[in-house]
Simulated scan of single mutants.
Amino acid sequence: MALNFTWYTESFRLAKEFKISRGAKTHAHVLVLEVSSVGNVKLTGWAEAVPYARYNESIESVVVQLEEASQHISQLADQANLTKLLPPGSARNLLDCALWDFRAKLENKSVISLLGMKQPSAVLSAQTLSVDSIETMQSEAKLLSHLPLLKVKLDANDIVEKMKAIHAACPNSDFIIDANESWNIKILNKVLPKLTQLNVKLIEQPLPADNDAGLLDINSPIALCADESCHTAERLPELIGKYQAINIKLDKTGGLSEALALAKAAKDAKLQIMLGCMVASSLAMAPIYLLSELADYVDLDGPVLVANDRENGFIFEECRMSAPPNLLWGTG
């Protein structure tokens, strides 16, 4: 069956400005890929990705990769060659996930059944607090004080003071801190003893990915999670001893196929698993949601962060995330 590839950009306005240590944004700019059959039987699979400047990607650079790679994919079986055609990243993610969706429609089976895995039930997803002033973050936290798990974006400023204020607003919540590479080893050593008293369960990427060797000397009472340092299963051994957890994102692994391989390797290595996302719609969340049964933490609140999600997207009841019967991706 011959295949045709079409890609286009979309922009989702965010419900509110989203801030992390390296910048802020008001819109999510995404790239969508559609894979369609050529001939009498018309089938279309699709996927969504967020090219990320942190990994030297732009929408333009990913489009160039798609233009080149799509010329070497003439049939569904060519999905197995994606790792030879493309490095891990958004382009490979788009092709891999769109081909999985296409396969589900072609075989009239869900992707989860094709993988031979258990369908996730409603899962607890962290809700995100953007980095801001102490007062603003505490005020935002009060609105989420009934939720059991919050992810807090922080930079290197007022770390403990902000967490004390947030903890006071949400005394019964657990916290994941995401530093987005903004700390150094001195800061980490200084704040760790105090953060242990504030329900912090995980600290995500405290040090820059290319300067995290110092973590080998840290005996952290809080699990440290690799995000920017973690991409594929092949490089996982480099993280052992530095981190106790990894954050799996499709735009880093290059799609669902590698994400599953990475999750299995992490399980074998006795590492905790967090499922993460870029800010995007439910279409970007749907493939990685299938790995929820393997995860210790789920952080897939992208659809909550956009002002208007796609039709047939995920259902969020407070912090509980579940898929509707006719989810927009992967249901065959």
Rank of each mutant, 00 (worst) to 15 (best):
L305I: 13
P303R: 15
I159T: 10
S282K: 13
D96M: 00
S110C: 04
S125C: 10
E228Q: 08
Q127A: 06
P208M: 03
N4R: 15
N211I: 05
I185F: 06
E204W: 05
L94N: 04
G332N: 02
P120H: 01
R54Y: 15
L275C: 10
N247T: 04
D268Q: 14
V306E: 04
N108V: 09
M137H: 07
P120Y: 02
S11D: 07
A284I: 12
W100I: 05
A323W: 14
K84V: 00
E161Q: 07
L66M: 01
S292M: 12
A213R: 12
V279S: 05
V30K: 05
T44A: 08
F175M: 04
D158K: 14
N108I: 06
G255K: 00
L76Q: 09
P206D: 05
T196C: 11
F18K: 12
P206S: 02
L328D: 13
K19L: 11
E68M: 04
D268Y: 08
V111F: 01
T128G: 02
T44G: 01
G313M: 07
D212V: 05
H167A: 13
L144K: 02
L147G: 01
A156D: 14
T136H: 12
S37Y: 04
K42Q: 12
P206Q: 07
A263N: 04
E228W: 10
W7E: 04
N56S: 15
V63G: 08
H29V: 14
A263W: 09
V50Y: 15
W100N: 01
W46T: 13
D296G: 07
K19I: 12
K109M: 11
L305K: 05
L236V: 00
D78W: 00
P87W: 09
K153Q: 06
D210K: 09
V200S: 07
K242M: 03
T253D: 07
P51T: 02
V30C: 01
E60Y: 08
A53T: 12
L198C: 07
D268L: 15
K186M: 12
G254T: 00
A169G: 05
D174E: 15
I222N: 11
Y297Q: 08
I246E: 02
E204N: 02
F314I: 13
D217S: 14
V32L: 09
K151F: 10
G241W: 00
K201L: 08
P120W: 03
L224R: 08
N189W: 11
R92L: 00
V64P: 09
A209L: 04
V38F: 00
I177V: 13
A307P: 12
M321T: 07
I240D: 05
E67K: 02
N199H: 14
T26N: 08
N308V: 15
Q79L: 02
S145N: 11
R13Y: 10
E317V: 11
S90I: 02
D268T: 13
L239T: 10
I159W: 03
V131Y: 14
I59C: 07
I134M: 05
I73D: 00
L43I: 06
T26F: 01
S70Y: 00
L115C: 03
K201I: 11
D251P: 00
V123D: 07
D101S: 06
C277Y: 08
F18Q: 10
V64C: 06
E17M: 01
E228P: 13
K194R: 11
A245M: 13
E135D: 10
C319S: 15
A2R: 13
Y243T: 10
K16R: 10
E48I: 08
K118M: 03
A126D: 08
